[in-house]
Simulated assay, not measured.
Amino acid sequence: MNLTLGSLLAGLGGLAAVGGLALALAGGVGWTPSTTVRRRSHTEQRIRALLGKDARSKTAWWSRGSSRLGAAVVIGMGVWLFTGWPIGGLITVAVVVGLPWLLNTSGSGKAQIAKLEGVEEWVRRMSDIHTVGVSLEASVQRSLETVPRAIRDDVTLLVSRLTAGWLPQDAYRAFADDLNDATVDEVVALLILHVEDRGAGLSRAMRELAEALSHEVLMRREVEADRQKPRTNDRWVTIFCLGIFGMTMLSGSYVEPYNTVTGQVVLVAVGVGFVLVKIWMRKMAVIEPAPRFLASGDRTGAGLSIEEAS
């Protein structure tokens, strides 16, 4: 790759032409900027969405597939015109489109911990709601008023199943299947045992179980904090590798071997290898959840009402 003033001007001219076409297309479609008032600046929103740290990143600028794909195509064509590498342009498009996946190394651990914490609060509040003379099903329905947001949809679905006439055992098993956590199985097992024998002392058992759940949440948060350290290192290694890839394109004779067909094939192999290493590192950071001890609910008979089942 010989970097000359003529090639630089040609690359900039091609990039400007593509940008002009994109602006013309946006004007023809009738694009207008959003008038929604946001507390954060646009730059901060894009950075947080890029890193996957914004709770509303699903509606953020960078997370919109059309915006990210358009930016990727423009940047990829600029790289192609600047370096003369068609494969380099395609890799750049793939990198820009997949940048949230490359930089966002967080797994589903935090979401599962939040749900488990919601279950702990729900069980603790249920122990106060359930009193002598009030059935467990009625207590579950009353708990909708104070159920934590993390499990509101799951508890609402549980109440809907109970209201629709599902057998309580089947409804509770389906609730456990929805949350898919071995610790939640302990809660559901307690509810099922109470349905079968209707014994006393459920409120006290729920309070004790809530204490155990609080310790479980604390332990999982500590484990998740330890797992976050290698994830942060992985993110910085990714940024470093992408930065080195970008700088090597400006190194002149050092990257001349990539101008050949063989060099382009090697470039593809390097890109594929980088993605495979990222996948391998993510699998290493994933901890298998504890196996559940409750079998999945019987879906064939789950929809039967109590009268029909009897």
Score class of each variant (00 low, 15 high):
M1W: 04
L3Y: 03
L15A: 15
A16Y: 04
G19Y: 09
A22D: 10
L25K: 12
G30R: 06
T32I: 08
S34N: 12
T36W: 06
V37A: 15
R40I: 13
H42K: 11
R48G: 02
A49L: 04
A49K: 00
A49S: 13
K53G: 07
A55T: 07
R64H: 13
R64S: 12
S66K: 13
S67W: 11
L69F: 15
M77I: 09
W85V: 03
L90P: 11
T92M: 15
W101F: 10
T105F: 01
G107N: 04
S108T: 09
Q112W: 06
E117G: 07
V119P: 00
V119G: 01
E120G: 12
M126F: 05
M126G: 04
T131I: 15
A138Q: 14
A138P: 05
V140A: 05
V140M: 06
E145M: 11
T146D: 13
T146W: 05
P148V: 11
R149W: 10
A150R: 01
D153P: 06
V159T: 02
T163E: 09
G165Q: 01
W166L: 07
Q169K: 13
Y172V: 02
Y172A: 03
R173L: 13
A174F: 03
A174N: 09
N180L: 04
D185L: 04
D185R: 01
V187P: 00
E196H: 09
E196T: 10
R204G: 05
E208G: 12
L209H: 02
A212F: 07
L213H: 00
L213S: 00
L213Q: 00
S214R: 08
L218D: 15
L218E: 15
R220I: 02
E222H: 08
E222K: 06
D226N: 07
Q228H: 10
T232Y: 01
T232N: 03
I239M: 15
C241M: 14
M249D: 06
V255Y: 00
P257E: 08
V261G: 14
L267S: 11
A269C: 14
G271R: 01
G271V: 05
V275G: 05
K278M: 12
K278L: 15
R282P: 01
T300F: 13
T300E: 14
G301Y: 07
L304E: 08
